[in-house]
Design a protein around this nucleic acid. Structure first.
Lengths: 208, 208
DNA sequence: TGGTCTCTCAGCCTTTTGGCTGATACCGCC
DNA sequence: GGCGGTATCAGCCAAAAGGCTGAGAGACCA
């Protein structure tokens, strides 16, 4: 069995260091490169052609993890991407899977889970932490609760504290339309006021 | 020079592992114990009497970091507590310092910063990441922007999406009083609507 | 003792928001 | 060609939120 080469992408040195120490205990896994941003990750993939990329989603300013995953796929690389992040927000999960992630792990995952995910990824197997999987199932079971792209866009702006009027101006639609979208969003999120929608969005949807 | 003993408290194994690897490179620093919750931390301090406790603030369910720091101080322990966390929210910083933290580091801190903070802590020196320090200075310069305890309490409930009426019921005050507090909060946060206040609170004040 | 801060409350008025109903248009799909 | 989903818009009404002014009580401090 050949060694699996891994690229670590996380803006926190401590996390990279910990992941490297953990993966280093496995004889069949080797960390061949590290990156602290999406840009660096792209360059590192070019240079090292790793089998697996383990990537955080939140990486400070610049390209975020999702964008980096998408860019990697555009370049027709064959390496598998594993998302390794702190939050299991619905929006992030969907977006990451959509962008082409092979797996989705939470940072409190057990070492065995991480090892299994890395090994699975090179074989084309999807691995995700139980909480992540259950969220995905929930979405599949309740498709009524999935926001449309336009609604998600609106919700995202909503979390910046804009009024209906401002939302309309920003999206080039009338205030009436804004209100219609909001009504749908409230229904899907199970809330009744914009305040609760914002709270839910930022916490549950991870729209920070 | 004797070796500095350290207790690591973080609910993420990866972070503990990384921190341990990093600190392990320093001959005068030794990680003698780890804990993944506030409860465990308290027990570990009893058992190992470390010189320094490096603690994350967010630790899933149960006792959070702030509470753990407070409990440690109540027990008259002499170890220094260093906060090591991802976010530099105003509220967390103030609360941590208030609870008795000796330093406040962000997880993207350079290794040298971390080492210096650990060494400084045992000598009674406060060390904090530059972004954290600047936030504290900002608060000292603009005391007008500091929320009163009652306002902070209200803001916290606000981020749960409650209406004015509900806020009043929850706090046993009239709706009029709620509105007064809100007006003050808006002024201090520099916003004009509750939506913006919630967004600001969750993002800047770290009220998740 | 007087000043300042904080917390509490009230009334009045305007703006914003949310609930409801109904409507048009485009798109993809069976 | 119709049907469901999405996106757009309008009008009406009630409820909620926000701006403004003023004010009393208690705490704390100089």
């Amino acid at each position: 069995m050949s060694v699996i080469t891994v690229l670590l992408v996380d803006d926190h040195l401590v996390v990279r260091s910990g992941l490297k120490a953990l993966l280093g205990t496995q004889p069949d896994i080797e960390v061949v490169a590290e990156a602290s941003s999406g840009e660096e990750a792209l360059a590192a993939v070019e240079g090292h052609a790793p089998d697996v990329v383990v990537m955080d989603l939140a990486m400070g300013p610049g390209m975020d993890g999702i964008e980096a995953i998408r860019k990697l796929r555009e370049r027709n690389r064959r390496q598998a991407v594993l998302v390794f992040t702190t939050y299991d927000s619905d929006a992030d999960i969907v977006r990451a899977v959509d962008a082409g992630a092979m797996g989705y792990l939470l940072k409190d995952a057990a070492p065995e889970e991480i090892f299994a995910a890395v090994r699975g990824a090179v074989q084309g197997k999807s691995v995700m932490s139980p909480p992540v999987a259950s969220r995905l199932f929930q979405q599949l079971r309740n498709p009524d609760e999935v926001l449309t792209p336009r609604e998600a866009e609106l919700l995202s702006l909503l979390t910046e504290g804009l009024s209906n009027r401002e939302l309309g101006q920003r999206l080039f639609i009338s205030e009436a339309t804004v209100k219609t979208h909001l009504a749908h969003i409230y229904a899907k999120l199970g809330v009744e006021t914009r305040a609760a929608a914002i709270a839910t969005a930022i916490r549950r949807e991870g729209m920070r």
